[in-house]
Design a protein around this nucleic acid. Structure first.
Lengths: 144, 144
DNA sequence: TTGACAAATGCAACTGAGTTGCATTATATT
DNA sequence: AATATAATGCAACTCAGTTGCATTTGTCAA
């Protein structure tokens, strides 16, 4: 359901040529984000890092995530609770389908093109639209 | 750009016939929500209530909002920060266009039907979809 | 290899949105 | 007016996320 996943090495190399450093935390965070099929919270990320023997302080993780967001490597999503979740930005823009019972998240590519809708909205409103977020909520087959 | 706004009186009367009480806070909260053209945070709601001489504790406001959400009177939206915002549910389902500079929010009716998309997703995934949230982000004409 | 500089880190203290328990008050009903 | 229960306010709490600052680490040039 995904497009090709950008391999961590590309990301890391890209950063290095821009004068940023390859640290243990950075490498591990990119790895975890790529390995995950659904958006991860910072708390989950820290737990996963610890499991892999790459402990990192929450401040570090928050800063790293912000850093990656600013560079378009990571996207933020919100599912209605107070936690922000993050996911690696792959090539194919997709949306999310969240089970309100168990919380599992699957991707929805949605061929119905919202990019066209954005164009129309821009023309009507005069806004310069930079992004949109679309999440569907429902009950998954296992929880019905 | 809105559908007809349900008048507060209808809502209040509906609740009263179900055994709930008409309190100052409840009346004032409904009024403020109806008067607003964009989603309101609890902090803003409290400030607005105070201005109208209807002070209410934040606990009261949170509980009242939850009460109204459970009854489909109010919808929650999230715009990427950690604050939840609420709006009166009007008849025409719409989406939001948020200016990332000044924060102003306008409604987007979006004729492009996502309900049809939901049907397709339900058939493909086996989920029972209950709702979706769609927000557009960009820069408004005044901020460009 | 080493020294220097900037990037990155960890810690502690903080912020602020949202929640919970409980005793009290207000509203509707009889 | 008495009763039942919905609604309220307060204080204390939770916890995601932030900030300041001193320290460490990665990179690169000499």
């Amino acid at each position: 359901m995904h497009g090709a996943v950008k391999v961590p090495k590309d990301v890391i190399d890209g950063l290095r040529t821009q004068g940023f450093k390859l640290t243990n935390a950075r490498r591990a965070i990119v790895e975890v984000l790529c390995a995950r099929s659904m958006p991860v919270s910072v708390a989950e990320l820290i737990a996963e890092l610890a499991k892999r023997g790459a402990r990192a302080d929450k401040t570090t993780v928050y800063r790293e995530i912000l850093f990656m967001q600013e560079r378009g490597i990571v996207d933020q999503v919100q599912f209605g609770d107070r936690v922000k979740r993050y996911e690696f930005r792959d090539d194919g823009h997709h949306h999310h389908l969240v089970c309100v019972e168990c919380g599992v998240v699957v991707d929805v590519p949605l061929e119905n093109d919202l990019e066209a809708a954005e164009k129309v909205i821009e023309r009507k409103t005069g806004y310069a639209i930079t992004r949109h977020s679309l999440e569907f909520f429902g009950v998954c087959p296992d929880c019905r």
